[in-house]
């Protein structure tokens, strides 16, 4: 160790002390500021996630009638059997409380559990695959802000052969395309936003596009209506076909049904769509308009078996 003159040593000691206090002050300031801005960011993500979860209507399948929101349990009757939406509150055992960001992204966008098991496509991961990672993680932040529920998730009740979970692997290989449908190069920002809401977040095609006997959506008849919708309901044609779709609806007609549930003949939608309107009525007016704008651009497909209500002239 080099020897120091006493004066120099004293100066160094003072300097060190000064540096020590200055450093401590800076650290303290950072320590106070960081969580504050972190908290603000988190609150922002939760609010954004709440809106996105509404657009995706997570509550629709993951909540039992009159039950705790997102605690699971709602029965979804389909031609393949009855599915029960699981508990997605942040409970560490019964919910998704132990999931990492990666677990959540893989489940939402790839349809795989944290253990790597495939989900049934009743969980619309084939649509959610198009959700951006940032939006997906905002949804996770929102879900993790909910009160945890210890309600256990219920096993699905499926008919043979759909009860064979291993069969989901070849199904994925045949039908799962993680790429969202491409948006036309000349699409306006509004139409592109509408495409994201309809195709990915809002997963409209899960009910309005018909499925084959293996449950895969027939994209050649995208949004052209499905006679075998959930709960035995018909999901009508929402393509711009003039006779059996929305071709004769005005833009206001489309926006109105999303906002109020009222059809162009002033009947009110029922069944599963009645539930969906609870979600779409909470969207911004801009987002409802974007949905209407995008629906006007998809190919029109006639479907007399599941026609949309036609306006009276």
């Amino acid at each position: 160790m080099p020897q120091q003159f006493p004066a120099e040593a004293r100066l160094n000691a003072e300097r060190r002390q000064w540096l020590h206090w200055a450093g401590a002050a800076v650290l303290a300031a950072l320590a106070l500021a960081a969580p504050a801005s972190g908290r603000a960011q988190e609150a922002d993500a939760v609010a954004r996630g709440r809106y996105l979860a509404t657009a995706a209507n997570c509550v629709g399948c993951h909540t039992e009638p009159n039950g705790a929101e997102y605690a699971g349990g709602r029965a979804l009757k389909t031609p393949f059997g009855t599915f029960y939406g699981p508990n997605i509150t942040p409970h560490p055992e019964q919910g998704i409380g132990s999931w990492s960001d990666e677990d959540f992204l893989r489940a939402l966008k790839r349809g795989l559990s944290p253990e790597g098991h495939p989900y049934y496509p009743a969980f619309p991961y084939t649509s959610f695959a198009g959700i951006t990672d940032a939006d997906a993680l905002a949804i996770k932040a929102f879900l993790f802000s909910l009160p945890p529920s210890d309600r256990p998730s219920r096993a699905h009740d499926l008919s043979f052969p759909y009860s064979i979970r291993l069969a989901l692997w070849p199904w994925r290989w045949l039908y799962f395309d993680p790429e969202p449908p491409p948006v036309a190069a000349d699409a306006s920002a509004e139409t592109a936003r509408g495409a994201y809401l309809v195709e990915s977040l809002g997963h409209c095609g899960e009910c309005h596009t018909p499925r084959n006997w293996l449950g895969a959506r027939n994209e050649d008849r995208k949004l052209a209506g499905n006679v075998d919708g959930p709960e035995g309901d018909k999901a009508p044609n929402i393509t711009p076909d003039p006779d059996t779709g929305l071709g004769s609806w005005s833009r206001e007609d489309v926006i109105r049904v999303l906002e109020t549930g009222l059809l162009p003949d002033f009947d009110a939608v029922g069944g599963a769509m009645g539930e969906v309107v609870r979600a779409t009525s909470k969207l911004t007016a801009e987002d409802r308009a974007a949905i209407a704008a995008y629906l006007a651009t998809v190919p029109g497909v006639p479907n007399p078996d599941a026609p949309a209500t036609q306006p009276e002239f």
């Binding site: 906002e259 549930g261 009947d267 009110a268 939608v269 029922g270 009645g274 309107v277 609870r278 009525s281």
Partner: peptide, 8 residues
Amino acid sequence: KNGCGGCH
């Protein structure tokens, strides 16, 4: 939404 739709 709630009046007509609630019942439907």
